[in-house]
Write a protein that binds this DNA or RNA. Structure first.
Lengths: 194, 194
DNA sequence: GGGTGCATGTAATGGGTTACATGATTCT
DNA sequence: AGAATCATGTAACCCATTACATGCACCC
């Protein structure tokens, strides 16, 4: 009974935290802020995950906690990776990506679009279009920033992730425009239907 | 004390169930199977959601249950939409799409790709590529099927949802190939890094 | 005086998957 | 003989968001 038990710390969230801490020592608050400026467009964590997560990681010896006293403000709890934590991160990075079941509410609503006026589907698609147009602007801005301080060895990786966002949003915009046209045509040709 | 309370039945799952039942009366088992042949590529539900979900919907008067006795096999519980259920579905369809926080594990791993050999990232991207190539084949097959019996008024909507899948997978394939090239270049030019 | 930012955390609640439990029939 | 399909459902567990609770400092 002890195959490779090692009841330690699973969960993608923990590993995301390790990854973020690999960029430097940080508090939970810092982590949230860093997410916003870096991986926010493809990953998110709430405080309700971050604080308990850090605690668990500390208990497992994967991160180390140091308390910085401050005047006025509450103490800062700054966490940093331990050697074990860095190893754990690498191991996890090597594991195959676990894909989760798809859930796309826009498509679900569009699929059943026959039950409602076409204008409803139009609106959903339009909003989707606008979101992705906005996203494209954001990506462009981030890419610009990245190329500015394009020194680090990690930058190419950051650009690759950005690029998937861009490809995806480009495709989404294209699809949305086509779909709006199709909806308009449906509207015109709606001959003998109730 | 009674603004617009109406504590009834929220949750996207319930509404997905209503949508599926709008295609005809069905049992929980049938629903699972239907998902596989229709919206499976952008939506999924497990039995653990379906059976309790149907029960709640029945309690709320949105669906009606009829039991079909069978020999040998367990009874079939066939559910069908009530008028109230159909109304509820339409209302929900009109509501704006609620987008959920993004979580893309592939990008997360790629983002931190600097910590591991490039071959690791290569493998992740390759698997992603293959998944989407496979998906494209599936989409093509479904589209063919759909155009075969292209009578119903709903078919255009089915094709629109399919089309987003196609656009998305096309983009993903394109990105994956580009990214593999970049990874190879990184590998070649890895001059003065530890 | 009021909003925003700094900074921590917990509790309630919701949503979901997976594994378990059961068992006959039909196909290979 | 064994696998797949039909058919239902529950229980344990995990993961995650949101709301709550607290409170000072700084800027307008």
């Amino acid at each position: 009974m002890s195959r490779k038990a090692k009841r330690t710390e699973g969960g993608t969230t923990s590993n995301a935290l390790l990854g973020l801490l690999s960029m430097g020592p940080m508090s939970g608050y810092d982590i949230r802020a860093l997410i916003g400026r870096s991986i926010g467009y493809f990953w998110s964590e709430s405080y309700g995950q971050i604080y308990p997560g850090l605690k668990r990681l500390a208990a497992a010896g994967l991160v180390e906690k140091k308390t910085e006293r401050q005047k006025g403000r509450p103490d800062r709890h700054v966490y940093s990776l331990t050697a074990a934590g860095r190893m754990r991160l690498k191991e996890w990075l090597k594991l195959p990506v676990t894909s989760e079941p798809p859930r796309n509410e826009l498509l679900l609503k569009l699929f059943f679009g026959g039950h409602v006026p076409h204008s409803v589907s139009r609106e959903h698609v339009t909003e989707f279009l606008e979101e992705h147009e906005q996203a494209l602007k954001t990506y462009a801005a981030i890419a610009k920033d990245l190329r500015k301080d394009a020194d680090g060895a990690e930058v190419p990786f950051y650009l690759m992730t950005l690029s998937l966002g861009k490809h995806g949003s480009d495709a989404s915009v294209k699809w949305a425009r086509e779909t709006l046209k199709k909806l308009d045509e449906l509207e015109k040709h709606k001959g003998g239907r109730r």
